[in-house]
Each structure stands twice: as structure tokens, then as C-alpha cells.
Design a protein around this nucleic acid. Sequence first.
DNA 1: GTCTATATTCGGATAGAC
DNA 2: GTCTATCCGAATATAGAC
Lengths: 238, 238
Amino acid sequence: MSSSALQLQHSNYNTFIEFENGFEYQGERLYSIIFERNKETIKVNKEKFAVRNLQKIFNATFSISPKIGFQAMSLRDLSAETGLSMGGLYSSIASKEAIAIMVKDVVAIVCDEIVENSMAKDDPVEALQTIVRGYLYSSTIMQSWFNFLYFETKSLPDLEQEASKNLELEQVTAMAKILRNLKPDSDLDMEFVATMAVSLIQERYVKPWKHHQPKTTVDQYAVDCLALIYKTIDYQID
Amino acid sequence: MSSSALQLQHSNYNTFIEFENGFEYQGERLYSIIFERNKETIKVNKEKFAVRNLQKIFNATFSISPKIGFQAMSLRDLSAETGLSMGGLYSSIASKEAIAIMVKDVVAIVCDEIVENSMAKDDPVEALQTIVRGYLYSSTIMQSWFNFLYFETKSLPDLEQEASKNLELEQVTAMAKILRNLKPDSDLDMEFVATMAVSLIQERYVKPWKHHQPKTTVDQYAVDCLALIYKTIDYQID
DNA sequence: GTCTATATTCGGATAGAC
DNA sequence: GTCTATCCGAATATAGAC
């Protein structure tokens, strides 16, 4: 119980709806956070205007770039899609590259929080639930953000590229650790199992053309993922 | 036995080495095939020269583009890396876009062959082996090609983008079909299992920075994948 | 805070000499 | 068959008016 008293309220969830209600990285709040973190490079001073523009810019980016790629998206495309002029764009962002970096920053914050929340659980079953559901739900709400970072990591400067890859490694490492706690005596390669689990979760945001449409709900998908993991490591659920 | 007599010799394999020996899409042979298929748009007439240049061009593309992305790679970058001049490049390829299209064509041929070979097997256990090992081994030998298509599908014209996505769907569909043959009475969602399997295979060529280095061999990885699949569908191997 | 207009660089592609 | 030289459009980014 020790550390669990310190947990954020939204670190306990068993359904998507429940998670979504406590998830702060969405809506205007999200863009406020981005604004706060990038005040120095954003020329617009009033939060009200900056937030509105950032919202337009990211929406436009996530509308254009999945179709043709970030590098092929010109700022003129972005200007047309946002309704802002070239000058208007540059008053809200430092450069084109800055867009990609901001995406990376936001996703990094969210990913860290997922791992943190999970690591705070003493019970490995709860910990597994938390990381799987947390990752799946977060990347559902922020689908465009996760998808963008996945495919556009190459568009980042070397340092941020490294950071982006590490996000994934941390998920795998954390999950493998939990799995070892669940079955301390197993001689299975838990890194392998965790790799499988992570890539299964990524499937949803990486290949929306395959999953996004009808088929299964996120909650069902979460159940399926967990069941598959338990089966793989021969863990009997009560 | 009926159809298995018609199979290509290299459709029977149980190890990477064995597969590699019968795999024709590598070395000079590969570039001969590309040359034959693109004679009309390649200005160089002598196969000897064309093959040598194509080899340089694809090697350079696979060296530069994973780091910065295909769109960010300029033909001047390519010129520097290949040692060919701008004019020299354009005598061997029709355009920059043509490079991406040729990659897609080659990968499509290989993927089709994997599915074909697998579908030719009457025994579902053999069929599963064939598709899993075929996909894994092919994408190991042609790692750069598969990786490129995965991340640069966006750089293709709409029509080829569609074709590229279909390649993946065909793998999943084929694998799901085999799994249903293996366990006809199971009420598991075999599309889900196949999706998991395919994304596990893709892991290797999609994230080489995670897997390529030391760790497990391809053969071990194949065994692990197959074991995981069997476990998932509760199939007892003899 | 947002626009228009423009500076400047760099991209893909081609023509024509060798 | 390959190279050099060059065209031309398009890209990022900025200056300064409103």
C-alpha cells in the first residue's frame, strides 16, 4: 500500500471511458501544456491565441502528414489547411522541425507517465493491467500523436531520434520486469513476450487502416491482449 | 501430394541457410530482375552497366534513407553516396519516385511467392512453417527492402500505396486461413492471432536497432514465433 | 497578432558535351 | 554511358505593413 497512496487518481482504471475521464492530455488542456513548455520559441504571447493556433497546426499536420509524410508536407500545405498565413504559422512555431519535436515531447511525457503509474503498483497483475491498458488507451486517445512519432522519428534531430527509440525500449523493459514478477521461476524469455505485447499494442495506432474501423473496441482489444499475454506465460487468472 | 510436385525447389526449408541458398532475390541476380522489369524507363541499355548502377543506387538509398527518410534524401545526396553524377543517376532510373516504386515491386514479388509457396502445402503444419519461415527469412535477407517499404509507403503514388498495404493484409489473411485449418473447431479469432504473428515477424525488420545486433538468431526467432503461435491456439506439436 | 511580399536556398530534372 | 552545366519551380524562413 505504501506508494499507492501517492498515485494520481487516474492511475486506476479498468475501462476506456474511465481512463479517458482522468486523462489530461487532450482538448485545450493539451495545447496549454504545449504552450507552457515552448513559451520561449513561440512569438505569440497570449495563451488564448497560441492555443488556438497550435490546435489548428497539429490538427492540420495530423491530417496531411499521414497521407504524404511529414517531410513532403510543405508549410504552404499547412498554411492552406490551417487557414493561417506563412507569417501566422511562424508566430506560433519556431520552425517546421519544431512541430515534430513538440510531438515527441508530448508523447514522451505520456509514455513516462504510463510506465510510472505501472511501476507504482505492487501487485504484478495490477501492474500489467495498468501498463497494457495505459499504453493502449493513451495511444487511442492520442492516436495521431503516437502514429506520427512512430513514422516520423526519422524527421527528428539525432538526439531526439535516440530519445524516441528509448521510449519504446522503456515500455518493453518495464513490461518484461512485470512479467518476471508474475512468473519468477519461468525460464521464458520475458523480453520476447514483452516485445510481442508492445508490438501488438502498437498495431492499433500504427495501422489504423487495418484496425480503426469497425471490428473490436479498445476495451475488447485490451482484454484480448491481456489474455494472450497470460496464455503465453502460462499464468492462470483467478 | 498433387500440387506439391509443382513446387519450386526452394519452397522446402527448415533453416535459414537452406532457405538462403535457394533464394534468388539477392546479389546480381536481383538487380538483373529489376533491370528486366524496368527496361523501358532505364536509359542505359547494357545490362552490365545498368546492374552495376542499380546496385549502387539501391545500396546508397538504403544507407541514407533509414537515417533521414526518403523524402529528405536528395538526389545530390544519392549522387555523392553512389559516386554517380546527376546525369548518371537519371540514365539508370526514371525519377526519384521510381526508386520507391521499384522497391515496392520487388517486395511484392517476394511476398506473393511466400504466400504461394505456403498455400501450395496441403498439411497446415507445413503451411504455417512455410509462411512464417518464408516471411522471416526473406525479410532478413532483404531487410533494407522490407524496412524501406514499411516506412516509405507514404512516398508512393496512391495506387502503389494501396498495393503495399494489401501485401500485409494478404499475409494476415493467408496465415489466418492456415490457422483455421489447423484448429477448425476453435472459436478463437484467428485474424487476431495472425495479426499478432505478422507484427512479431515484422518487428525484426522494422526495428533493427532493437533486434539486429546480438541476441537471437533468425532460426531461433522462427522457433520462438512458431511456439508462440501454437501456444496461442492451443495446438500440440508432435 | 496576423497578414503580404520577398529573400534565398535547394530540390528534381534535362540538354548536350565528351 | 557518363559527366558538367543549367533550368525552373518550390521550399523554408523573414521583414515589415496593418
